[in-house]
Write a protein that binds this DNA or RNA. Structure first.
Length: 946
RNA sequence: GCUGAAGUGGUGGAAUUGGUAGACACGUUGGACUUAAAAUCCAAUGACCUGAAAGGUCGUGCGGGUUCAAGUCCCGCCUUCAGUACCA
């Protein structure tokens, strides 16, 4: 019988589904292991061969862990809210729920045909109301929490109210808005309810604020920093501008330090940790106040080099800084206003692209140096960013290159405060070599000592204080989109109110148009039924409640407007790993028992593109949930692996410019040509394309002429991202049909190291396919299935045992590519040995089964087993039979090489010592000296010591 | 500019972490089987010297170094990819 992958694979996929083979139990005596993939966004294009790479790797590991006796949780679901479904809805009027449903069905079919061991009974979908009920619930918990810097964790807002009632806000040490005003207990108690709510909003972990946001006019929504690439939107590449809007934000900045510290406790790839570290951007320094001459105002600046404060010769404000208009003198007004206007006109992108041009304007105002009392000029310049620090810098031209360039350009003084350093050409920024001079009480001090001294002095005189600044901004949480989680929020008198948890979920309403309303409100403004009735606690018609206008809404008997924004894409993905533990729980997002049992993800596999998005937000929510006692651990994933991308190999034809002639690759240099990408699926493994296939493919080739070389048309190749528009997408359906899922799985692993990006080349799959056929033939020597019960030979055992050893090591190290080679060697050796012995072939199947589960199950059942191979224990290497032929060992004496001996690899230490000793005795006799003692030490060299 | 990763045959990639470089696979070439093709099997395949073999020389981006021994360790360059970017 021939190896028939189609029959075998559909048979066992059905078997696994019917028997719920991979269903995980929340109650088991076995140790637990949680293997998680980043759940996919179900896009309309379906899966291409690049998508399953990480899933295959995690599936191999999950299956391996089951063989090793673990209770494995290996779930899958869909991150099903998102922009593409909504954009499709805008274009076609199709409801996003409908297209999402269809796309999920396609994904599920494609995933099933690859034979993953997912526990589908735990599937989650972020767009499912039963799921986003808990997204809304967590939002409410964030709203009801504040961050206590003394206990260094999030606490219930009620503890903050108690503190306010007792002492006002002067004694609490909280993370809050920067512009909170201080008040006493008496003042607090005298505030109106609305005033109190406004103040509390400045402390809550999710809060409303007028923030300058990244507004994308083309998409009609705000974008988070990580959704912008090079000044344009990540999706679609539309321009992005800065705009002030009232938005929900998440106080992730409260967790900046803990997000940094936590990185030391988790086994994540270093590059990913580095990019999170950079994103959080911790810098240590001081906050210093410079009074403004002649005004009742001061300029606060953050600096990492307070030790250089005596080198300050001017200050620079961001053009958007609040003080600019106030301090500008009459004579400078025209110049300053012109500069501010010019800066506002320049897009963020321009400003970023152009870092060379030095520009700025003098305000005419002066600040007073807090130590020396000297007057220093105040300038504005666009090299100072409004969004970082305080939007103002103290300029030390001798110690900072940008300040230096600015001073040189405008002819400002550059005083030197460093001992023995020439600053005539450039600034001097080497902290380690710094010795301070011309700086009063800091003279002669080195960097570290100067830092301590100056900060101490600042704090003593009330000029400033030591401070740690973070680049990490609070995350904007509102999106002007339809296809996202609605907020569980309504407004009374303009103040946000949370809907009681018992009334969740607040289900996304139907709308007729998915675009923003005419007056610029988010799409939910189009819903007819979108107001909150506090009498019945239900969503009702918003006919009466037209806007957030407080006067109107209050007149309507407790019916209030609901929040019109929806949550961003990362909301639902920030806790889904906890929901998998107990996905059908209707009273909690997961029960305490389930959370305590599974605790955290043991292995998480996904792409590195989520480094500063999902993976940072998820860590933030987990820490928050941990603080509030809702989860048992404060990092959600112990180990993480970034799988590399599988790239496409595009095919290129060359059109002779201005004609309908296409020239083969080898002759293209003789013409002036343009490159065109064509469907890779038309090209064979020799880069050859049939011109008739091309003619039929697209009308533009129909009447084309082809200039061939040796009768063939050869295409050019280019490795790039798999994408429909490059026509280089390879569909896994085709591969599964032609070669089978087991081949696809083996081949994706065989392509190269998991973490690396690598190009797909379908021609290479024949190697793994013929491996499977050879494996099959070990059991089917003729037409009939046959294995013998004879005792294996030493050679056969050697093959088996070295395979066990290597494959186990490989899986533990996630080197799945090399174990595929190991299987091939094993099959070739066993074929050569004509081995058909059960004692060898049965354990071999278990080794192969994580990689190629279908063929393994089939042969396993033909071997007479009635239970699934996935419940079988992984074979154990007995340590005895691994025998290599021999190897030359250099023998050294006092570190100098003396001679080499050929020793078999399976020798014990004692045996080796004997042989080497005998050799040494002979040598010593020949040389007429006394033999040295032989000691085998770990390592490659065998040492003889005197 | 900064941070990180990586440079090995025609190609993807191995190399027990300092011990016979190029495993395994693709591709190519030759052969067997076949009317033919597909499939399958066998052999060769880093470069150079020699008709071939035997044998030898050179070979892991470049230049040095450490070592009995370097793809692997150290120093200095070059190149590619990824992330980040006026962060005070």
């Amino acid at each position: 019988m021939q190896y028939n992958h189609q029959e075998i694979e559909s048979k066992w996929q059905r078997f696994w589904a019917e028997n719920q083979t991979f269903k995980a139990s929340n109650d088991s005596d076995k140790p637990k292991y949680y293997v998680l993939d980043m759940f996919p966004y179900p896009s309309g294009a379906g899966l291409h061969v690049g998508h399953p790479l990480g899933y295959i790797a995690s599936d191999i590991y999950a299956r391996y862990k089951r063989h090793k006796g673990f209770n494995v949780l290996h779930p899958q679901g869909y991150d099903s809210f998102g922009l593409p479904a909504e954009q499709y809805a805008i274009q076609t009027g199709q409801h996003p729920a409908k297209t999402t449903e269809e796309n999920i069905a396609t994904y599920r079919r494609q995933l099933d045909q690859i034979g993953f061991s997912f526990d589908w009974s735990r599937e989650v979908r972020t767009s499912n109301p039963q799921y986003y009920k808990w997204t809304q619930w967590i939002f409410i918990q964030l709203f009801n929490s504040w961050y206590n810097k003394d206990s260094n964790k999030a606490e219930d807002i009620s503890t903050l109210i108690v503190a306010f009632e007792k002492d006002g806000n002067t004694t609490v040490n909280a993370v809050c808005d920067e512009d909170v005003t201080s008040f006493t207990a008496e003042e607090w108690n005298a505030f109106s309810d609305k005033e109190q709510q406004q103040i509390l909003l400045q402390y809550r972990l999710t809060f409303l604020s007028d923030t300058e946001v990244n507004w994308c006019p083309a998409l009609g929504t705000v974008l988070a920093n990580d959704e912008i690439v090079n000044g344009v939107s990540e999706r679609g590449g539309h321009p992005v501008i800065r705009k002030k809007m009232t938005q929900w934000s998440m106080r992730i900045s409260a967790y900046a330090q803990r997000l940094l510290d936590g990185l030391n406790t988790i086994d994540w790839p270093q590059p990913l940790k580095d990019s999170q570290t950079n994103w959080i951007g911790r810098s240590q320094g001081a906050m210093v106040s410079f009074p403004v001459d002649g005004h009742d105002a001061k300029i606060d600046v953050f600096t990492t080099r307070p030790d250089t404060i005596f080198g300050v010769s001017f200050m620079t404000l961001a053009p958007e800084h609040d003080l600019v208009s106030k301090i500008t003198t009459e004579s400078q007004k025209a110049a300053v206003e012109a500069y501010v206007e010019a800066t506002a006109k320049r897009s963020e992108r321009d400003r970023m692209a152009d870092v060379k041009t030095i520009s700025g304007a003098f305000t005419g105002g002066y600040a007073i140096h807090p130590f020396s009392g000297e007057k220093v000029q105040i300038w504005i310049g666009d090299y100072v960013l409004a969004s970082y620090g305080t939007g103002a810098v103290m300029a030390v031209p001798c110690g900072d290159q940008r300040d230096y360039d600015f001073a040189k350009h405008f002819g400002i003084d550059i005083p030197n405060i460093f001992e023995g350093v020439d600053i005539s050409e450039e600034a001097f920024a080497d902290k380690e070599k710094t010795i301070i001079a011309n700086s009063d009480f800091l003279n002669g001090l080195k960097y570290k000592k100067a830092m301590k001294t100056v900060i101490y002095e600042m704090e003593k005189q009330g000029i400033g204080y030591g401070k740690i600044n973070y680049r990490l901004r609070d995350a904007v949480f509102s999106r002007q989109r339809y296809w996202g989680e609605p907020f569980p929020v309504y407004y009374v008198d303009g103040m946000p109110q949370m809907i009681d948890a018992e009334h969740l979920p607040i289900v996304l309403p139907e709308v007729e148009k998915y675009l923003p309303t005419e007056d610029g409100q988010p799409p939910l403004g189009n819903a007819d039924v979108w107001a909150w009735d506090t009498n019945t606690n239900t969503v009702m018609s918003n006919e009466l409640v037209i806007s957030n206008d407080s006067e109107k809404s209050d007149k309507h008997n407790g019916v209030y407007p609901l929040e019109l924004n929806t949550m961003p894409g990362w909301a639902g993905s920030s806790y889904y790993f906890n929901r998998y533990m107990d996905p059908h729980n209707d009273t909690e997002f997961a029960s305490k028992e389930a959370l305590d049992y599974w605790k955290q993800v043991d292995l998480y596999i996904g792409g590195s593109e989520h480094a500063t998005g999902h993976l940072l937000y998820a860590r933030f929510w987990q820490k928050f949930l941990f603080d509030r006692g809702l989860v048992p651990v404060d990092e959600f994933a112990k180990k993480l692996i970034n799988q590399g991308m599988i790239l496409g190999t595009s095919a290129i034809v060359y059109r002779v410019s201005g004609s309908n002639q296409y020239v083969s690759k080898g002759l293209k240099d003789q013409y002036e040509i343009e490159e065109l990408r064509v469907d890779v699926n038309l090209v064979n493994s020799a880069d050859e394309i049939e011109v008739n296939d091309l003619r039929n493919w697209q009308p533009q080739f129909k009447d084309a002429e082809f200039i061939l070389e040796e009768g063939k048309y050869i295409v050019g190749r280019e490795v790039e991202k798999m994408s429909k528009r490059w026509f280089n997408v390879v569909n896994p359906d085709r591969i599964c049909e032609e070669y089978g899922a087991d081949s696809l799985r083996l081949f994706e692993m065989f392509l190269g190291p998991l973490e690396q990006s690598k190009p797909w080349k379908t021609s290479g799959i024949s190697g793994v396919y013929s491996f499977l056929k050879k494996l099959w033939k070990l059991y089917y020597n003729g037409e009939e299935f046959s294995v013998s019960d004879e005792a294996p030979t030493k050679e056969e055992l050697k093959t088996l045992h070295k395979t066990i050893k290597k494959v186990e090591e490989d899986i533990e190290n996630f080197s799945f590519n090399t174990s595929v080679s190991t299987f091939m060697i094993a099959v070739n050796e066993l074929t050569a040995q004509k081995c058909n012995k059960r004692a060898i072939l049965e354990p071999l199947l278990v080794l192969v089964s994580p990689y190629a589960p279908h063929i393994a199950e089939e042969l396993w059942s033909q071997l007479g087993h009635t239970t699934s191979i996935s419940t079988t224990a992984f074979p154990i290497f007995d340590g005895k039979h691994l025998v290599e032929s021999s190897k030359n060992y250099p023998i050294s004496f006092n570190g100098k090489m003396r001679f080499t001996l050929e020793l078999p690899l399976d020798m014990t230490k004692e045996e080796m010592e004997k042989v080497v000793m005998a050799h040494e005795k002979t040598q010593a006799q020949l040389q007429g000296r006394t033999p040295k003692k032989v000691i085998i030490v770990p390592g490659k060299i065998i040492n003889i010591v005197g």
